[in-house]
Simulated scan of single mutants.
Amino acid sequence: MKYRRFGKTNFKVSEVSLGTWQLGSKWGDPFNEQDAQETLAAAYDAGVNFFDTADVYQDGASQRALAKFIKDKGDKVFVSTKVGRRLEPHVASGYTPKNITKFVEDCLTNLQVDALDNVLLHCPPTEVYYNPEAFFTLDQLKKAGKIKNYGVSVEKVEEAMKALDYDISSVEIIYNMFRLRPADNFFKMAQAKDVGIIARVPLASGLLSGKYTLQTTFGKNDQRTTNRHGEQFDQGETFSGVDFATGVKAAAELKARLGAGDQLAQMALRYILMADAVSTVIPGASKPEQITRNVAAADLPAFTTEQMAIVRDVYDQYIKDPVQYKW
């Protein structure tokens, strides 16, 4: 495993880390504690030292599983947790000092730590970025020793740019072969502020595995079924906002032109790591064997200039309009 400096936190994070949305459960299935612990152990044994979670993942079960796993790891691991999506309804007015403080305290309880390594506001409405009170609350929690660093998980590039006005340490943003816009300007802006970047949704909800066809179906509780058109949350989260049929076609072309064979998913992760501004990429996993496939991406050869051009060409041809202009 290779490691990169995580912005102004100075922590050296594994290039390929672990997103725990699916930890211990496949898409929409019940949580399985044994699977969770085995997956975490496999990740750690492979050199993963950065774990991304949220208070809403499996209603806190993801955090509690992490708590059990990290209790004897000390400063060898870094846990980044998101807060805010427990709000019902999830509106800007809910990001009050009282609510944010309560969310942080609940995370401290779930993770069984005295201070949180990193807290991200969990894709708050755009209005929140123009409300300094939410960020000043995080400043106060930092001064109180309850959190060590804070930042934001965003839907849109514009939100990421606005967040740089505050004393953030990191931004979690969707960046993959089907979502190239963050690299146009934002990455340079983040580097100038010494802000770490966490690349999320790296495989576009599985489209960039190259395994889907137009006949592929998903479970009834799977967000790839229930949120395909943004019924539950931002449409850009599911398939990176790409129309499914278009995404299948674009992935097939990438697979063929890159000569990816059965390694398109690993190549998609390696592509993300071509950006120096990216601190870590966080593919999910629900079983140990998925960890092995994910971390192998860090050892793939760097993309050639020709390969980089192929990705841009496929993006421009199939994906850019309308994805580039929405997120």
Rank of each mutant, 00 (worst) to 15 (best):
A144V: 05
P124F: 00
S205Y: 05
E127A: 10
Y166R: 08
A160T: 00
G7C: 08
L18I: 08
Q22W: 12
T213K: 11
W27Y: 14
A54K: 01
M1N: 13
G19F: 00
R224P: 03
T81C: 01
D45L: 12
P97T: 04
K326I: 15
E172P: 00
W21Y: 14
Y318T: 05
F78R: 06
L138V: 04
T304Q: 07
D29H: 14
A65V: 09
Y44S: 12
L121G: 00
K255Q: 15
N99E: 14
G74M: 10
L18P: 03
L254Q: 06
G7E: 01
G28K: 03
Q22M: 14
R257S: 11
P288V: 09
G241D: 04
Q63K: 09
V79I: 14
K143Q: 15
G7P: 01
V201Q: 06
G259E: 10
L141W: 07
V16W: 05
V79F: 05
A250G: 00
K156Y: 10
Y44V: 10
E253I: 08
P97L: 04
A65M: 08
L214E: 15
Q191V: 08
I272H: 00
K193L: 09
A190K: 03
G261E: 12
T305W: 10
R257A: 12
S80Y: 05
T217N: 11
G247Q: 01
Q223P: 15
L264M: 12
Q290P: 09
N221A: 11
A302N: 15
T225Y: 10
E15F: 09
K142W: 07
A163H: 00
Q263P: 09
S286L: 09
F50G: 01
T137L: 02
N131H: 13
A36T: 07
R270L: 11
T39G: 03
I147F: 04
Y150D: 01
Y271P: 09
T292V: 14
S17K: 05
R312S: 14
N149W: 09
L141N: 02
T225L: 10
C123V: 11
T280Q: 05
S80F: 04
